[in-house]
Design a protein around this nucleic acid. Structure first.
Lengths: 338, 338
DNA sequence: ACAATTAATACAATCGATTGTATTAATTAT
DNA sequence: ATAATTAATACAATCGATTGTATTAATTGT
């Protein structure tokens, strides 16, 4: 039982395969009577269009490539979900690849995506990626590229969909101020990462706008694991027993701080109000639940995919020098209600 | 600047394109001297192999399709990560699709994957999927199918990679018994789902094996959201103030129970030991951290992908009537240490 | 040195669908 | 009724790599 092709259908109906092809594609160069005959016969013979052949001929794959550092991280799986949803609506397939934060693997992935003639690439670069020759190579091959979340400087021809970390941090801090906090600490992450510098900046800006003096000793830096949060909570209270608000640059560290405060009978949010960052799934489950900043991976994914698809549809004429900045949202929960 | 093909390279070197093709594929029908020349010229001209053409000719796509209900769910994104890793090692691409629990979308996805001539399909079926004509159709097209986690009965020719829920529940309950619990409750999920029936079964079996009488009033059923856990905790304590152990069929409900016990000053694990199920990321972050059963999505993904790839490699001769049952692991944490 | 053998390369068909152009069939106009 | 026009279909090249077979070049044996 061999594969059914348009040629088989053509032979069976005693017409030409080009007519079959046009009938299947609903071209107006074919009578509706013929179309019907073809469609019926196709169904009868169990015809399955071979996209490999179609893609080769049409020089497009109807596929976009997505590269993320690690699929299982909640933020990235959310973006992927958003991407898939958007792509699916327009009939595009999505190839997913993970760089595992290795530049070398990222380069191989890009190579492979080019070889597979994807119509476009969405990428959140690995931490090790500083230069982007492999990405420039995409443009040489007329494959549009859109960064999301993590991007590289110096590629004006590539789209970017970013979240305004600074604004998110600003809102988090502002929220604490509006809840009456006067002495607000900040747990920051590695300064090597732009996002943490931005979040610190937003914190500072909020303080400034509300005329609260910035005191560097209220800012502690770590890798923001849970135990780091716990340790920093201890440290900051030793230095500043008057602390009444805390903005953590991620949710995990906030949970660590929670735990420490409980052990010393500081009440959250009564004594100390806390705001985290990222809206991790667990932040709704803590006791009290954690006020945080939502980066909506899904929205980012949708926006990035839309930008890319527009580009593809336009024949890459407007090769995206566009940058979309999404606004993070404050998710108000128990940890800041006082 | 047009696309560089093997024909361009051949022309430039004044040799035949078949030799170029063989050189690029490292065939032993080509001198190493010629290979070198071809490779150099290819690099010089910026040649990128067109997999679309290659795939068409070789009648395989080097791509596998993965269908999950929802990418952003932690368990599924973990399996996808495992699948991607395994597939990547063997040079396969991974197309990801989400059914969003809709049978209709699932059918369209399968249709599309067949049209794209994927070499195999990994699927965790949507909740609505009862019959599998769309999947049978894959076999008709000689595309092997492997189920993971959620499967359909009645497809002996399709591989299956499942986790032993019952064993997981058994181990969870056994662990509580070994920690000295005598009065162990169980929070179960909707009986319509096989997994919850299995977990209940495992709970019963453990009790039986350790000669603890089974008392139906120690088992409460709900949808296992956080608030359900909280309510059930209240209810079970009202009925049985002597409760000293609790096995929850998921981690979320366990967190709800945690919260209730805290409000009434029952100490976890001192007064009541708790074990959850799934090893959700947040289970390591609760206070105390939650003992749970790990289903290792990553392992399931790897196993399912390996099974599928073996099948593909064997030319689908052994179209997988194989079922792999993975053993869940107990993750011992604070909530059960007494 | 010449036939016999093997190595290296060239030729040409093929995978299956698409699409510009040519041809035939069907309408319309005169 | 015949030319002119339009609709419908047929023909054939093409996308780019692969691969079985044919041909030429190189090597070995005697």
């Amino acid at each position: 039982m061999k594969n059914v092709t348009i040629h088989e259908i053509a032979k069976a109906l005693n017409i030409n395969s080009s007519t079959v092809s046009r009938a299947l594609n609903d071209s107006d160069r074919v009578t509706s009577k013929t179309k019907r005959k073809v469609l019926d016969k196709a169904k009868e013979m169990g015809y399955q269009r071979n996209m490999l052949a179609s893609n080769l001929r049409r020089k497009r794959s109807n596929t976009i490539g997505v590269v993320v550092p690690r699929i299982s991280r909640h933020f990235f799986s959310s973006t992927i979900a958003g991407i898939e949803e958007t792509a699916y609506k327009l009939g595009f397939n999505v190839i997913i690849c993970q760089s595992l934060e290795e530049l070398e693997k990222e380069e191989l992935i890009i190579e492979n995506l080019i070889a597979n003639r994807v119509d476009g690439i969405l990428i959140s670069v690995s931490m090790g990626t500083k230069k982007g020759m492999h990405l420039a190579n995409c443009l040489n091959n007329r494959i549009p590229v859109v960064f999301f979340d993590r991007h590289l400087e110096g590629f004006p021809d590539m789209g970017k969909v970013l979240i305004d970390d600074q604004l998110g941090a600003y809102r988090a801090t502002e929220h604490l101020i509006q809840k009456g906090c006067k002495k607000i600490g900040h747990f920051s992450g590695p300064k090597s990462l732009q996002i943490y510098r931005n979040r610190l900046e937003g914190y500072k800006m909020a303080l400034k706008n509300y005329h609260i003096p910035y005191d560097e000793s209220y800012v502690l830096t770590s890798k923001l694991m849970k135990k780091d949060g716990l340790e920093m909570a201890k440290k900051i209270l030793e230095a500043h027993s008057d602390l009444d608000g805390l903005f953590c640059a991620n949710d995990t560290a906030a949970v660590g701080a929670f735990d420490y405060f409980k052990t010393i009978d500081k009440r959250v949010p009564k004594d100390i109000a806390i705001v985290g960052f990222s809206n991790e799934p667990f932040s709704a489950l803590t006791e009290p639940s954690l006020t945080t900043i939502d980066q909506s991976g899904e929205e980012i994914g949708k926006a990035a995919c839309s930008l890319l698809l527009e580009n593809i549809a336009s024949g890459n004429t407007l090769i995206a020098n566009e940058t979309v900045i999404l606004n993070p949202k404050l998710i108000e929960r128990g940890s800041s209600q006082r």
